[in-house]
Design a protein around this nucleic acid. Sequence first.
DNA 1: CGGCTTGCCTAAAGACTTTAGGTTTGCACA
DNA 2: TGTGCAAACCTAAAGTCTTTAGGCAAGCCG
Lengths: 190, 190
Amino acid sequence: MARAGLTTERLAQAGAELADEVGFDQVTVSALARRFDVQVASLYSHVKSSADLKARIAVVALQELAELGAEALAGRARRDALIALANVYRDYAHEHPGRYAAARFNPASASADFLAAGGRHAEMTRAILRGYDLGEPAQTDAIRLLGSVFHGYVSLELAGSFSHSKPDSSESWPRILDALDTLLSDWTSS
Amino acid sequence: MARAGLTTERLAQAGAELADEVGFDQVTVSALARRFDVQVASLYSHVKSSADLKARIAVVALQELAELGAEALAGRARRDALIALANVYRDYAHEHPGRYAAARFNPASASADFLAAGGRHAEMTRAILRGYDLGEPAQTDAIRLLGSVFHGYVSLELAGSFSHSKPDSSESWPRILDALDTLLSDWTSS
DNA sequence: CGGCTTGCCTAAAGACTTTAGGTTTGCACA
DNA sequence: TGTGCAAACCTAAAGTCTTTAGGCAAGCCG
């Protein structure tokens, strides 16, 4: 019997695809084994546990997102940069809901890869703020605010929380980003 | 053998407590049965399925939150109201992380109770905005922004995303709320 | 006090996780 | 061109959770 050629990386990659198809929390070692037409136990040579698999999928998603973010930020500043990065997150979440959910996964103990990818994201948001020259602690406050809005808006939107009220949620988004730009431009210490 | 006196309501209530202790997604029909010292199958007379149980826990949490919110909003307007409601969400999430996670649960098909509680929450945020007199669509945009920040900040905070940078996350929070107050006061159509 | 509702039980099947230990594949090296 | 060996994949089994089907008994109602 020809071998399937499993590796930890291929499993994480296939797991990411599976997440987009069936939802991140339906991603299961069993389902992944079926997808490779292989016995379930075979995966445990490549992956420590179900949680380990999910953590690896999270790293895949975080790295993809960081890549896209870096590309979007290149050559942009202030409002342009803000809008570009915000749209990277939102578009990614819409195109890859399972991966996006994976990126929000909180592993019990974070791997080095995971921490590195997390750091890249914080760094990107910080890069946006360079254009607005805020001192500390305003800068950290602003990073947290932007992270909250990006994540919060996208989560609520994907959960359907905005689909019961009138203007389509894609219309509010650019206006909210404009408001954030104004807010950052006028930020005062109190 | 004396009976345990199970009812759908008691199960939802006990499920909410269990969620706070072990985490919402560790809430299981089996664990709840153990807590009542009863066989697992017995719960299925009171609850249709595991998803049904979770949806009922979500309703409990949403109702509690709505109650607290209404209390906090009474007699307050603008900045005071904004801060009061924001703190209701944040404090609740810190005190009852499992219930808070439950409140974010998205049931496949929403019950009437669930929709009603959801509506109360949207209404509370809308009430805050009365003090800032925004027209449409600014008002809807602002509701969505506030919802995103509340939910996003609390989620990231609980996930530990803010615990790697310097000012404690409880320090950023009031400054972010101040910034939102300013933003709402100065909101312009473009 | 007998009957009936319904609360809780036993039993069982199906899915997922994880560990232990066996077999086979195919690359590396003689 | 074999041969050996590490890695890849397998079978087996135990434990957990979900859910359904059908049975016994508790306790209210008349």
